[in-house]
Write a protein that binds this DNA or RNA. Structure first.
Lengths: 406, 406
DNA sequence: CTTAATTTGTCCCAAGTAGGGACATATTAA
DNA sequence: TTAATATGTCCCTACTTGGGACAAATTAAG
């Protein structure tokens, strides 16, 4: 039961029905390929004739193509299989991080076309855009003969306004109100979409062919230098009025807890970020604002995990402590949003076997009901590159999205 | 950009376009009435002919009716105004609370037909249903000649499964897994809808003719014996996988804080519920589980507020303390969901002038950005009966809802 | 008082959509 | 070789919006 907004509605035009069914057909081909026209008609609950018309339209636009004749189990004419045409269109995914920027090109199915490359992030925006557009143009030039670039999806570790394409605040980059979208679009002559990394990771999961969560509801939690969270409800990313929706990293565990980078105290992030875990290992008071001693400055969570695996009790204790707080925070997410599935990513996931039971115990402890306490948790390892896949989805996904209607 | 769920989609049928435009027209008549066919065509951006067809269909179904000829400012033929027909259909709203149950009948616009009546809540479900259906049948009998009852909306202080119509857990009523919907439907022979009170209050606000929040995003916070929260995103109530979405009352302020009725510690509810405010006034340790002394058992928050107004510094301090925690919890809601508007209801709202600045200060303190810290807050007083209006909306709203499509 | 301008609401036909069935084609089992 | 069955195409019907013509109603201007 959705309310029709009397100020922002879309009436049904002559083409609307077709657009709806066309997008459904495209989505079904994407998720079920290889699939025949007759299969499609069965899946859609319509006649083969109607499905054929949609298929022909999609083929004319080169969004799908006819592949080989399939083997149809029993007797009867064999089906001609349909596939998403991932040859003519591709998108470029960019993941800007504090120290390095990563770059990739994928087809509309999210399959990489060229491997991931990376270069040091220049915090000077103009310089970064220059470097980025140079590399983007090079990719475009290489593919000019075969396919056309649909645009560039950029993921940033910070608050973004997806609509205007501005980076509102990215602490680790030192950016504040930076117009990234228009500048990059001008430099590359390509459509550009900007998004916060947590949300992009969540988007990558909704648009993944398999799974995606319970009826389009899921949350992605990324534990790294900070804690980024992306929330998807009814198949749509939740951005909020002031673009801060999903910032569970700054919902408190204890308001009197350790100071957080955001200025407040006791935020979830201050308990579970990589820095918090490392601080715990070095036995520092969490309220201590002094920098970590130089000799430990290059010590990472990965190092800590390997020490824990090698029997360092203090390292294991630090991880366990983080695990407990991680679970407590997940309980807040479950009680607030109750997604049917939570994805967790970040360096600490490499130690998931060590921390899972503590995380689940803490989640069960504070979740309001027992079933909610058993909410499905899926880990996403670092080498699945969820941020880059999300960046690609920023441009690939709209081709399959439901039309705005009513 | 919404994902099409490849398992649960709705293809566009021949009637789909009409259904979409019909519901838009109905919504526009509801929000803009009185309105002429020509006005409607202008609002919808379509031809007068198309609007006329929709209007005729709606009139045949007696959902709208033609009223008096209007005064059309300039020259030209005068318009015939259209109105939602609130004479032929009505709904019954029921608010079951711990001690008393409230009953009301409204038309489809939410205007009360018969005044609010109430009776003591019998915690024995069968007895309550018997009493309730007796009173419902009496209302139906009184209106048999004029109009037909569309159904009964019931609001319960506890967790509900709106789909199955079961009350999962209502602590104050001592109910657990009670099949209220089917039992009441059988007893009254009317369609019945069940919902949690926080969500129903939120629904009442989305469906209010004026306002409703920023693009269908809002949160309703009800502070009473417990803290109920209803979340609306994209014009739709968020219920979650296990029906606990929106339980911000059990998101912690400090995990080591006072014990909450849910069994956990430091929940927001344990800081801001009426009981918490009263405990503070009586100078009790918040972890104290002993009942409040008998001589104070009938002392309410209203009494506390009047003492505060009469210069009782301790009462004022208790309110101020609650106000601060209220603001801190609102900050969690803003950081998590970022609705453009928050509605607050409950007995403590009678003291809003005393607590507003403390609430806003705490909200601004922890909200992630300054604009988010200034998120619009609207109070809903007890005598607006948001729960009953929400109960009515449970049945009235679907008549205006957007059709499920794509 | 008459006329022109303007607004409203209706009607009709064109364009475009899904619904339904007939049909040729292709393939296998009997 | 034949019957059965599955696929994909085609055509007509039903129903929708798009667009314009038109009568009725009303006011402003002359």
């Amino acid at each position: 039961m959705r309310k029709i907004d009397p100020k922002r509605f879309q009436i049904a035009k002559r083409r609307t029905s077709r657009e709806i069914n066309r997008q459904i057909a495209l989505t079904l081909i994407r998720t079920h390929q290889p699939v025949s026209r007759a299969d499609l008609a069965r899946l859609m609950g319509t006649r083969r004739g109607a499905a054929s018309v949609l298929v022909n339209e999609l083929m004319e636009e080169a969004l799908i193509f006819e592949g080989a004749i399939g083997e149809g189990g029993g007797r009867g004419r064999k089906p001609t299989f349909l596939y998403i045409d991932s040859r003519e269109r591709y998108v470029i995914a960019v993941d800007i991080r504090a120290t390095r920027t990563y770059l990739m090109a994928t087809d509309l199915m999210g399959k990489p076309l060229v491997g991931i490359t990376n270069f040091p992030t220049n915090r000077d925006v103009d310089a970064l855009i220059a470097e980025l557009s140079k590399r983007i143009k090079s990719i475009v030039a290489d593919h000019q003969s075969n396919a056309t670039c649909q645009g560039v999806g950029v993921v940033v570790p910070g608050m973004t306004d997806h609509g205007s394409g501005r980076v509102l605040h990215a602490p680790t980059l030192g950016w504040r109100d930076v117009d990234l979208k228009d500048a990059l679009a001008a430099a590359t002559s390509l459509p550009v979409q900007i998004e916060n990394s947590g949300r992009a990771c969540a988007l990558a999961q909704v648009w993944a062919t398999r799974g995606g969560g319970h009826e389009g509801n899921l949350v992605f939690v990324s534990v790294s230098d900070g804690v980024g969270v992306g929330v998807v409800i009814n198949g749509e990313i939740v951005r909020g009025r002031y673009n801060i929706a999903g910032e569970f990293g700054h919902v408190p565990i204890s308001v009197d807890g350790p100071r957080c980078s955001c200025g407040a105290t006791g935020c979830w992030e201050a308990y579970v970020s990589n820095l918090a875990t490392l601080s715990r290992y070095f036995g520092r008071n969490q309220n201590d604002s002094k920098p970590i001693p130089a000799e430990n400055a290059t010590f990472t969570v990965e190092d800590l995990i390997s020490r824990a695996r090698n029997g360092d009790a203090k390292a294991l204790a630090a991880l366990q402590s983080t695990a407990r707080y991680l679970g407590l925070g997940l309980a807040s997410i479950v009680n607030a949003v109750d997604p049917g599935r939570i994805y967790i990513g970040g360096e600490i996931i490499a130690a998931w076997d060590l921390i899972e039971s503590a995380v689940r115990a803490a989640l069960a402890e504070r979740a309001l009901t027992a079933p909610a306490g058993r909410t499905e948790i899926r880990t996403v390892s670092v080498d699945e590159h969820p941020r880059l896949r999300g960046a690609a989805a920023l441009l690939a996904a709209p081709a399959f999205a439901a039309p705005m209607v009513a």
